[in-house]
Computed example of a mutant assay.
Amino acid sequence: MNQHTQPAVLAARLSKSFASKQVLTDLDLSIAPGTVLGLLGANGSGKTTLIKCLLGLFRTSGGRAELFGQDSWNLSAGVKERIGYVPQEVATYPWMRVRHVIDYTAAFYPRWNRELVADMCRRWRVPLDDRSGTLSVGQLQTLGIVLALGHEPELLILDEPVASLDPGARREFLRTLIDLVEHPNRTVLFSTHITSDLERVASQIALLRGGQIEFCGELDLLKDRVKRLRILADQNLPSSFAVAGALSCQVDGRLAVATVADFSPQEIDELRGTWNAEVTVSDLNLEEIFVELHESESPKLSPADLVGTAS
């Protein structure tokens, strides 16, 4: 991606507070067109607040939030037509039948793919003749996804979109999402706790912690840098044994198991030489990395090696 391309999503020193509670602080995030970015953070880390600031649903307390170069608080109708959004809790018109909700929503968009919508409704068994107020939470979430995808938005923002879906509906949604993101200029910001879903669709990962983006970059880079080491020495290791850059380290006699945030082969050679140890390096999946990072007080990821922008 050309680094001079205007970001589809931009947060610059973005801050948001509610009364005396500071949720986001000087947060920076840039997402280039065509990027599929997974947003991860612990409960209460501010993911939904960030999304709502980006969409102009919350006014920022400081800094900037922009979509397609426009201030999020003052988005034009033209930019809004390019955006699809699935919130955590979908709200609709409870007295309207589902097919009428779809028709009503379609009327707001000059470009509405009726064939795509009909296909999604069929595959996801959307009850078109039921009143939307009688839908289950999962059915309402499915309807929200259909409404967000119907106009094939250039920017799709998803806030825990599959939390209420059954496994079959979740699989169908991911299959549809994978098809949609094949378009080179379609951008997706996908917030979810289901890390396996992100590993299937996301090329970039942003980790939100302490009101700021701790890491933003290639998923493969994150996996390359965060590793688990199994260190077996020829004699008992001291209780003070430590590994540089370790997020966690447990010692039991001759054995130590450490997770490092800034893996380097040179460090492995040093451990082998210093402790006359056998060192085994293991890969971690995204869920394991996320747990390690958020259970660790310090050190955090090395900014020099890891922090970047999704561009």
Rank of each mutant, 00 (worst) to 15 (best):
L207E: 01
R114Y: 06
A242V: 10
H4E: 14
G78C: 07
L198Q: 05
F108K: 08
I51D: 00
E115R: 13
A77W: 07
R186Q: 09
R186F: 07
V307W: 04
L57A: 11
R123I: 00
E295T: 13
A244R: 11
L208P: 03
L219S: 07
T35I: 09
A148N: 05
A42H: 11
Q266S: 14
P161H: 06
N2G: 14
F215A: 06
L57C: 08
G217I: 06
D283V: 04
G245H: 07
V181C: 09
G56K: 02
S15P: 03
A277W: 01
A304D: 15
D28G: 06
A106F: 07
Y104M: 11
S61L: 06
L10C: 08
T60P: 10
S136R: 02
A42E: 13
I231L: 09
T274S: 11
L116H: 08
K223P: 04
T309G: 12
S282E: 14
S298L: 14
L10E: 08
T25D: 10
K52H: 11
K80A: 03
S264M: 10
L143I: 04
S132H: 01
L116G: 05
T49P: 02
L247P: 00
L147M: 09
R82W: 02
D234G: 12
D119I: 10
V86E: 03
L229H: 07
G62S: 15
L14Y: 01
T274C: 10
S240A: 14
L140M: 15
N276I: 05
A8Y: 00
L57N: 06
K223H: 14
P238A: 08
T35C: 08
L174S: 05
R99C: 09
R228D: 03
T274F: 12
Q6A: 14
